[in-house]
Design a protein around this nucleic acid. Structure first.
Lengths: 228, 228
DNA sequence: ACCATAATCAATCACTCGATTGCTTCTGTC
DNA sequence: GACAGAAGCAATCGAGTGATTGATTATGGT
């Protein structure tokens, strides 16, 4: 908590002129070390949350000295922030624009197979959320929200429905295999981590969203003529 | 972890013959102490999860000596188990049988107003879930699941829908105000903790479940005649 | 070759954690 | 009132916790 280590935190990609031809064989490689620590941090924080994560475990998993965590990220807190920040950047290129909502939601539910740690971090951050943090970047879901609003305007969605709430429901339902594994085991009698169940669940989620009336993109011709 | 303190764990409601007429004024009241510790534990574990909870904080909140936690519950782990066990017992009388699904789901979403700590404990337990624990007691959702199956048999729900998955989706969506507050802040621009938004969200959830076709109980006459 | 510095490490720091110990005080029974 | 046992408490213990220190080694520029 005492911020006495302030040096060297603004490193990023330093302007290195003429880097060595074989950086993979170097004994010392700051970028590689940073990356390894970040990867280990993602695994550890995803598995145990912030309070349950151990710096020693992260360093051991990364194969580096424990002190390097403070050296590169200014302690546990800085490492956590750097990890979440990096993860949020990756999330931006998740679904291509114009994807129909049921398929979009299906991919969200399948994301746990591609990046289970990322989904778990999202879930942890929700429970750890205090209200003053940055939360999720607004532009992440802006496109999906706009799409739902368009669907409503075209008459596919009843006027009394709040598109923002629908998006939240679908997002929450999409990560249920991560947030409610114990309920899934009990209700479905299946392994919520297995790829088989995750795919089945994603298909079901797409099916349900089609039942609500979320099929077709806004670009498609509306089912009936615009009412006015 | 070392289970050397094994005495006194099986107290429960001891068979006290002729208890004092005014136990509320006694300086020593084991039942009251036990209850206070359990209440404080629920608050602490709900706020910070197991790893983030502090025995000192629980004892301070309960207004008792820290050692009494080990005395009554055999340490942090025993206290956590006793707390979750007590909470699960309370959950059994949540919704009266025969309640239509949309209303049932609406009440689940509103539960966060009645017992926010309980919902948070459920959410924490999901992320902490390792797969070997007891999970949720099966009979908790059995009634709702049966109701969904009946709806499907009566033709209100398409045959390709998996009722168990639908129940999981609805459960997960119902606790979104607890699990994804940061997303709600971003997408809805509202305070996910406020009673106003929670009620709005619960109404929306009931609305959506009606859109899927979950209105009416199984006891109601089916909309069309049974197909066979 | 030399040097300044970035990168890495071992050692250990101050502190917090949950648990334990040994004692004191209250309570019900006779 | 005396006694036995339950209930409660202060003190402290050992095992971690994250952070810090100070030295060592590799690296790139000149």
């Amino acid at each position: 908590m005492i911020s006495s280590v302030t040096r060297l935190y603004d490193r990023g990609v330093s302007s290195n002129p003429r880097r060595s031809p074989q950086p993979s064989e170097r004994q010392r490689d700051p970028e590689r070390t940073r990356r390894r620590i970040l990867e280990a941090a993602a695994a550890e924080f995803a598995a145990h949350g912030y309070a349950g994560a151990r710096i020693r475990a992260i360093a051991a998993r990364a194969g580096v000295n424990q002190q390097l965590v403070s050296y590169y990220f200014d302690g546990k807190d800085g490492l956590y922030q750097a990890m979440t920040q990096q993860w949020q950047q990756r999330q931006h290129e998740l679904v291509p624009p114009g994807t129909p909502m049921p398929e979009q939601i299906r991919r969200y539910a399948l994301e746990v197979l591609r990046d289970p740690e990322g989904v778990r971090v999202l879930a942890w951050s929700g429970l750890q959320h205090t209200g003053d943090g940055p939360g999720a970047p607004p532009e992440t879901f802006e496109q999906s929200l706009r799409q739902l609003r368009d669907l409503q305007e075209s008459g596919r969605l009843p006027a009394e429905v709040d598109p923002a709430c629908v998006l939240v429901m679908l997002m929450s339902a999409a990560i249920a295999t991560t947030t409610l594994p114990q309920v899934i085991e009990s209700v479905c009698g299946a392994d919520p981590r297995s790829a088989e169940f995750v795919r089945h669940y994603a298909d079901q989620l797409a099916l349900i969203s089609r039942l609500i009336g979320l099929d077709a993109t806004a670009e498609d011709p509306p089912p009936i003529d615009a009412r006015r």
